[in-house]
Measured scan of single mutants.
Amino acid sequence: MQIFVKTLTGKTITLEVEPSDTIENVKAKIQDKEGIPPDQQRLIFAGKQLEDGRTLSDYNIQKDSTLHLVLR
Score class of each variant (00 low, 15 high):
44 I>Y: 13
20 S>G: 14
55 T>E: 04
66 T>S: 06
55 T>Y: 14
49 Q>M: 13
8 L>T: 11
56 L>F: 04
65 S>M: 06
53 G>Q: 13
57 S>Y: 13
70 V>H: 05
16 E>L: 15
14 T>S: 06
2 Q>K: 13
60 N>W: 09
57 S>D: 06
46 A>T: 06
15 L>K: 00
26 V>S: 02
23 I>A: 10
20 S>A: 10
48 K>P: 01
4 F>I: 11
58 D>Y: 09
66 T>V: 10
65 S>W: 07
54 R>T: 13
12 T>H: 15
12 T>R: 08
31 Q>E: 14
9 T>R: 07
42 R>Y: 14
55 T>S: 15
26 V>I: 15
50 L>K: 00
49 Q>V: 05
52 D>R: 03
30 I>T: 02
35 G>L: 08
68 H>Q: 04
53 G>I: 07
43 L>N: 00
28 A>F: 06
72 R>N: 12
52 D>P: 10
23 I>Y: 02
45 F>W: 15
56 L>I: 14
66 T>M: 03
4 F>A: 04
35 G>E: 07
17 V>A: 14
56 L>A: 03
40 Q>D: 07
60 N>M: 09
38 P>H: 15
18 E>Y: 10
26 V>F: 02
71 L>Q: 14
22 T>R: 08
18 E>L: 15
23 I>T: 07
54 R>M: 11
28 A>V: 12
28 A>M: 10
51 E>Y: 03
52 D>H: 14
31 Q>S: 14
65 S>Y: 08
18 E>M: 06
5 V>W: 01
23 I>D: 01
20 S>V: 10
62 Q>D: 05
72 R>Y: 11
68 H>M: 02
13 I>N: 02
62 Q>L: 08
66 T>F: 07
62 Q>S: 05
59 Y>G: 01
3 I>S: 00
34 E>H: 05
50 L>F: 02
49 Q>N: 12
26 V>D: 00
43 L>Y: 07
21 D>P: 00
42 R>I: 14
15 L>W: 01
8 L>F: 10
71 L>E: 13
21 D>A: 09
25 N>V: 13
40 Q>A: 12
18 E>H: 13
31 Q>L: 07
5 V>H: 00
29 K>L: 11
31 Q>D: 09
13 I>F: 15
12 T>S: 13
46 A>Y: 12
70 V>T: 07
26 V>M: 06
17 V>W: 02
8 L>S: 06
25 N>D: 15
46 A>M: 02
24 E>W: 11
42 R>T: 15
26 V>E: 00
31 Q>K: 07
36 I>K: 03
49 Q>I: 11
45 F>M: 09
13 I>T: 08
28 A>R: 09
56 L>S: 01
14 T>L: 05
43 L>A: 01
41 Q>K: 02
68 H>S: 05
36 I>R: 02
8 L>V: 15
51 E>N: 04
51 E>P: 02
20 S>F: 10
45 F>A: 08
24 E>T: 13
14 T>A: 14
21 D>Q: 09
27 K>F: 06
61 I>T: 02
36 I>W: 13
29 K>H: 07
64 D>W: 04
59 Y>A: 03
37 P>W: 10
23 I>L: 11
41 Q>V: 03
16 E>D: 14
46 A>D: 03
5 V>Q: 00
72 R>L: 11
55 T>M: 03
55 T>Q: 08
68 H>E: 04
44 I>W: 14
50 L>D: 00
72 R>T: 15
63 K>D: 03
13 I>K: 02
13 I>H: 05
31 Q>R: 10
39 D>W: 06
50 L>T: 04
46 A>G: 14
61 I>N: 00
4 F>D: 12
29 K>Y: 11
2 Q>G: 14
40 Q>I: 05
51 E>S: 09
39 D>R: 13
50 L>R: 01
56 L>V: 15
59 Y>R: 01
32 D>N: 11
15 L>R: 00
42 R>H: 15
53 G>S: 08
32 D>P: 04
64 D>Y: 05
64 D>P: 02
10 G>D: 04
45 F>D: 02
9 T>S: 14
6 K>E: 07
31 Q>M: 04
69 L>T: 01
18 E>R: 13
30 I>P: 00
71 L>F: 10
31 Q>T: 13
36 I>Q: 02
42 R>W: 06
13 I>A: 03
24 E>V: 07
50 L>S: 01
71 L>K: 12
32 D>A: 13
47 G>R: 02
13 I>D: 02
71 L>H: 12
10 G>M: 11
58 D>A: 12
15 L>E: 01
38 P>D: 13
16 E>I: 13
53 G>N: 08
50 L>G: 01
25 N>A: 09
10 G>R: 04
39 D>M: 10
53 G>R: 04
19 P>E: 11
69 L>A: 02
1 M>E: 07
48 K>F: 09
50 L>Q: 01
17 V>H: 03
21 D>R: 05
18 E>T: 12
